[in-house]
Amino acid sequence: MNPAFSVIFFTTASGAGYGLLFLTAIANALGFIPSSGWFAVMTLGPATALIVSGLLASTFHLGHPERAWRALSQWRSSWLSREGIAAVLTFVPLAIFGVAWAFFGRTQGWYAIAGLAAAAGAVVTVFTTAMIYRSLRTIRRWHNRWVVPNYLAHALSTGAVLLHAAAQAWGEPQAVVAVVAFAAVAFAAYVKDRYWKFIDTTKSGSTPETATGLGARGKVRLLDPPHATENYLQQEMGYKLARKHSEKLRTMVRWFAFGFPAAFTATAPVFAGSLLGAALSLLAVIFAIGGTLIERWLFFAEAKHAVTLYYGAREA
């Protein structure tokens, strides 16, 4: 699949934003984090910014962004529609929670519940995003049980390093935040690894033989494509990534999205309260987000679409 930047940015940014929102709300409910309105600005602020910019970016690739509102109508069947609704609905408790906390310093009671509701909305929204991909039978590398965990884990890991950085910057970091961030990154690494194992070892049941129904005559091979130059389908669905490139990029993901953030998150508490601690936690954020962008790019670039079987691919 063509790795379109708007979608990569959207899922990464909003994922991180929802992850941060989720953790902040939970931590708040559990009383782990500062109740100062300023801390709200440092957590819910970036979360909202990431979510909103992601959502905006996602409309850029639409042919008709001005009609985007229509996308809320088909919740009965469409995960994309559900995602839109979940995203919109999540803004309501998020607004209550955020305004109460940031402007009035109120974080408990109904406001904590509003936060939890926003956290639930965040989970649902990321889940629906993942389900958009997970539900496509046409792309075996998306249509599998590792995709939803993958999206959730990455939202969580990027959200966690963000929360950890905020806590470090606040100067009163709780060890538990670092532990959670470390665990989230490790979990994301595990899930990603399982995902890669899965796509490397599982073949789709679709082949040029099933695509054409001509398998009884032997191997089926494309002789001539319908048009000599690339068409929309090939541009959108026919992205090809060489094995060695994907290996390189996976290694980058392993280091950037998981290795470095884990290492920095683990070392930051040692320098807690110092500038170095804050810097390390910030580096963790930068690497985690950068690494996730690559991870997302790969998620698309490595995905093979069934339609390519009609354009010369041996497998999809």
Binding site: M1, G63, H64, R70, L80, L136, T138, M237, Y310
Partner: peptide, 18 residues
């Protein structure tokens, strides 16, 4: 149509044209 292209991703047969 908002031109989100999702339907073209969902079609295994390459029948959708943007």
């Amino acid at each position: 149509c908002i031109g989100c292209k999702l339907c073209s991703w969902a079609c295994p047969y390459g029948a959708r044209e943007f």
